[in-house]
Amino acid sequence: MELLYIGLLGGLLALDTTSVGQFMFSRPLVAGAITGWVLGDLSLGLTIGVVLETYMLVSFPSGGARFPDGTTATVVAVAAASVVPSAGALPLAVGAGLLWGQVGGWSVTTLRKLNGRLVPESSDPSVTVHRVTLVQLSSVLLDFLRGVIVTVVGAGLGRLVVSALADSWPLAEAPSLGLLVVGGAVSVGILLHDLGGFRKRRVLFVAGLALGIIGARFL
């Protein structure tokens, strides 16, 4: 029953990725916090959300782009991590979420191909006001169902994997988070490249870095 609730949550959050509004409830940071709160562990959800948000900093929900589905990935990761209270649960769940994000991305592409068959073209003789409205709303409903299915299957498999492997994880809690942050540092480096590169932006980057280090010492 809990998986069904998680699936419904995944479906609702997945709608925000591109189909409805794009208010960024679907970003890992927010999706992780909401899922954690629903499952009774806001802190765990937020930690996973922070890690996956860092990984997804260079992944944009651009209409035409093919991107990993960070929303269902986050819901799956939080659901998977919540079953076992051990140091290995966090990295394994994040790993499962990242892998499942690829499956989610594939499901988005598949749905878009299906939408391509449903939408009428201007030359189509059967075009009516009713059909345009029906296709639009049906596609939104299909995206919701896609999110539900991807989340339920992913959370089920993720929980199995984490339950089976968490106890044999070799690192303690702090280095486990360290490992995930190191992986996320790759994305942060890529983002600096996208923002103009170190050479062009070094003054602003170093100013931010100094501010961050000083802030971390005093806050």
């Binding site: 702090a174 942060v188 980057f205 931010g208 802030g215 971390a216 010492r217």
Partner: peptide
Amino acid sequence: EAATVMLGLLVGVALASPTGLVHT
């Protein structure tokens, strides 16, 4: 430019905060 400052800020706090990499 603002995003670059935020990026530096994030790297700084991820390194130096009490749960950051330097303390790990």
